[in-house]
Amino acid sequence: MSQAHALKKAIAGLVLVAGSTVAVSVQAANEINIYSDRQAFLMQPILDAFTKETGIKVNVVFAKKGIIERLKNEGANSPADLLLTSNVSNLSRAVDAGVTQSVNDKTINSNVPAQYRDPNGQWFGLTTRARVIYASKTRVKEGEFQRYEDLADPKFKGRICTRKGGDTYNIALIASMIAAHGEAGAKSWLEGVKANLAQKPQGNDRAQVKAVKEGVCDIAIGNTYYYGHMLANEEQRAWAESVNIVYPNQADRGAHVNISGMALTKAAPHRAEALQLMRFLTENKAQKIYAEENYEFPIKAGVSASKLVAHWGDFKADKVSLAEVDKYRKQAAKLVNEVGFDN
């Protein structure tokens, strides 16, 4: 199968959002093809800046699910050069599937802290977001909640809302608890959290904050960048304004963070151009656009967060590498099932 035909098949099987047309030819040296589970509009301002600076066109195919499986099925005929994902678990799954290749690049390694990249160079973080507590301004006293461990405190019985335990972001949080307390300790904690739920786990992170606003619960678990998106949404602004952001574990290990990230595909027909884009995504210009567009924290040191995000205050992040945390992903999923968290 030709590379051009492979790209046609990829487009036919995926939803495209990013400028409407993906070029069929992958032979041109001035083009890069991306498979992404991050919606393309989040990336488009950055990719436009890259094209303006380099003249290299970037084609993006977006699909919420199935990208890793497609890369595996396409094998050496894949037209994709770069994989973009919204979390570390998908990056690790791509490595496990054998669809990535190692990159050892001085610029990228310098820009991305070691804790946010694969030690073997298979993937790299691009932005970070903290998994925080959204606490009711009126029903949770200042200082009442301080640690993730507090989610299992009986004083919060019937006061907690969260999306499903099997969700990628919660799996990563549970994995971080295994890293901190061992599997038995994390299981006991998860049982305590389940006992404190105000309702069956459901919805997304924003839905949990809405539930706090409506009095269903007093505390919600969610990612930081959703706070910015809610404030920017006229309908959802009141939800955000009803809560305070609490960064957990500031007196000890720090708050758990996840990443959006990238990996060079194993096939990568435009490897040199893809590496050029990977470097660009970790440099100041792209990092600043990330910060402004999606309310995430830049991964490169010295690049400031947006004014809105900076207003939320500084916080200490957990220093355990995400590669280490993700080793416990399968154990975390097992615990969710063992305690019947989502039942």
Rank of each mutant, 00 (worst) to 15 (best):
A220R: 04
T127L: 05
S20T: 14
H229M: 05
K327N: 13
L173S: 04
Y225A: 04
M278Q: 03
A40L: 08
S92E: 06
S321P: 13
K327L: 08
I46E: 01
R129T: 15
G166V: 09
Q331F: 10
T168G: 12
V15T: 15
N59C: 08
I289A: 01
A333D: 13
Q276C: 04
N77Q: 06
D342G: 08
N233Q: 08
F145M: 07
K194M: 12
V132M: 07
S110G: 10
F297Q: 03
I259W: 02
Q44A: 07
L82N: 00
Y225L: 05
A4I: 13
Q208T: 11
N249Y: 10
A263S: 06
A40T: 10
A305V: 10
L281H: 03
G125P: 06
I108F: 00
K72I: 06
H229I: 07
Q146P: 02
L281P: 03
L84N: 02
S260A: 15
F156W: 08
V103S: 01
K157A: 11
T162Q: 07
V22S: 04
L308E: 06
A240F: 05
S304G: 12
L264C: 07
G143P: 01
E296I: 02
K213W: 12
E324S: 14
Y226E: 03
Y226P: 01
G66M: 08
R253S: 13
Q331A: 13
D326C: 10
I219H: 08
E53L: 09
F297P: 01
L126T: 08
A172P: 04
G165W: 05
A323D: 07
W239R: 04
V309A: 07
V26Q: 02
D252Y: 14
V88G: 05
S242F: 11
I299F: 01
M278R: 00
N104Q: 13
L281Q: 04
N77V: 05
S25H: 02
M1Y: 15
A12M: 11
V257E: 05
L16D: 07
A97V: 09
R159C: 09
L275N: 03
R237S: 08
K8A: 12
K155P: 03
S86Q: 10
F297R: 04
I32G: 00
Q27F: 11
R38M: 11
I68V: 14
W312P: 03
A94P: 01
L47E: 02
L231A: 05
M177I: 02
G228Y: 00
S110L: 03
T128E: 12
E241M: 14
Y169C: 09
N337G: 15
A175Q: 00
F315P: 04
A28P: 06
I299S: 00
E296Y: 01
K9C: 11
G222Y: 05
R237I: 09
R159T: 09
A172D: 04
L322N: 03
V132I: 14
S188P: 06
K164N: 10
Q199W: 14
L277A: 09
E234L: 08
V88I: 08
N204D: 15
G19P: 06
A172E: 09
N90W: 10
G340H: 09
I67N: 12
E183C: 05
R279D: 00
K213Q: 14
M230C: 03
K300W: 00
A207V: 14
A251M: 11
A114H: 11
